[in-house]
Nucleic acid binder design. Structure first.
Lengths: 254, 254
DNA sequence: ACAGCGCACATTGTACACAACCCACTGCGC
DNA sequence: GCGCAGTGGGTTGTGTACAATGTGCGCTGT
């Protein structure tokens, strides 16, 4: 438990690929990935000192990474009580999905107008990677790549505030999928992604938006948001109760 | 230059009104207010040590406040080169307004559905405060309160991600207004705000959305975004060129 | 005189030490 | 036996020292 992966501390300026301030990004990315791939379960406490030892950096860096993750609502930062992996409630999930429908519609319309051939090629490449991950059985990477597809699409929309918002929404969506996805693993979203790219390339805004909305419906329908899914993980089941900021004890009021 | 306002350091836990971690908020709010009221011009460098002395706190706190402001794109954080007050370009301003139209429409529709009587009363109160500020000639406070009105409206929409996004958009909008507002100071937006509240209270979604869109049009038309307004402030005119992260000199390439 | 290099200062980035806080455990009293 | 206050361990919050980086000035050579 006290071993640390690559020192990452002793590389003063790794060649030229690593620019200054990359340490935060590395820590951020690793934690984010771990959460998406459910190696870190919702509700798990993220101790600053422990993470510092693991990554070989001081708490200062960890703190910045956690702060960033908290800004995207992927971790919950409780003053004086540390950070935990967020476990969005059903209501929070609904709100995220509502916001995503809104944003994805706008992004799709803008992407139809502005997407360049190069961006479309990149999007196709990402769909390939996504399909590979799922066929490899790497579910976590698949979820992540699926999210990155939507992020790339947002970039094609050429609207900085929307990109930033989309990043936050995609992060939360990934977390929600990881937490609520129902047993039925028919995760063929890459098909829909391909169709979407085709519609955008054809500059058919109506079709593209329709496909995107159906895509959202499909994602939605794969989740058991109506009835809290029966999970075998007690923590996941009760974590949303245990993490209220209320000063009361950690037990649920009877 | 070396005097500091209220120590704010020596109050270990000011009574019970000030919860832990309020120092950040205070610093954040003060800097934000100063930027909105244009006591801090776009492009101004925000030295950590100087701010620390002014507010009587260490760089740690300042750093967090700046980080938060950077997240809302109100200040620009340049690695190893310090923070400066953001000076949004015309293109950035356009993107912010496009995103706001999107979000405001959604918020208005949701507010029509969910706004409570209490929230409507609070909104009316805010419009009153806003009108008072403008009639007092306190333009900065007016801009700020006008923004807070839209934030309050977002709260009535009961969608956390939208609220968070709206906060960022409103901050940037305020900065843009402060920077680009044309001489014509007919800033009677509080009238439109009142009409909007009436429509929401009447649960008339169509009317409310129309009013909101017209409101956006009016804000838009008050700005000189079409042709870079001739400013007497050289910094403001060229700051968007001078602030690129490029390693080159601060002079524009000839 | 001007261009280019190098040094020195100022400012930010990081780590660490200490203080404040939360939580759990223990022991006492009821 | 149960509840509650006091106390100790451990974690987070904040300030500060030191290292690394960026910037500007002066020097030197052509």
């Amino acid at each position: 438990m006290n071993e640390q992966l690559q020192p990452l501390k002793k590389q003063p300026r790794a060649g030229k690929a690593g620019r200054s301030g990359t340490q935060d990004d590395i820590v951020y990315a690793h934690i984010f990935e771990a959460i998406l791939e459910q190696r870190l379960a919702p509700g798990t406490k993220l101790s600053e000192e422990a993470l510092g030892e693991i990554f070989g950096v001081s708490r200062t860096i960890i703190r910045r990474a956690l702060s960033r993750l908290a800004h995207e609502s992927v971790v919950l930062l409780r003053p004086n009580r540390g950070a935990v992996v967020a476990s969005p409630s059903v209501e929070e999930a609904r709100q995220v999905f509502m916001a995503r429908r809104l944003v994805e519609r706008a992004i799709t319309e803008l992407a139809v107008q502005h997407a360049t051939a190069e961006q479309l090629a990149e999007l196709r490449q990402m769909v390939n990677d996504e399909r590979d991950s799922f066929s490899r059985g790497d579910r976590g990477a698949g979820i992540r790549l699926s999210g990155e597809f939507h992020l790339k699409l947002a970039e094609a929309a050429k609207n900085a505030p929307l990109i930033s918002f989309q990043r936050s929404l995609v992060s939360q969506t990934s977390l929600i999928i990881a937490q609520y996805e129902s047993g039925n693993r028919s995760h063929c979203s890459y098909d829909e992604h391909t169709q979407l790219i085709d519609a955008i390339e054809a500059r058919d805004a109506t079709l593209a938006v329709n496909l995107m909305m159906h895509h959202m419906d499909h994602i939605d329908s794969k989740l058991n948001l109506d009835e809290e899914s029966a999970s075998d993980d007690l923590h996941a089941v009760f974590s949303h109760l245990l993490q209220t900021k209320k000063p009361g004890r950690s037990s649920v009021k009877l």
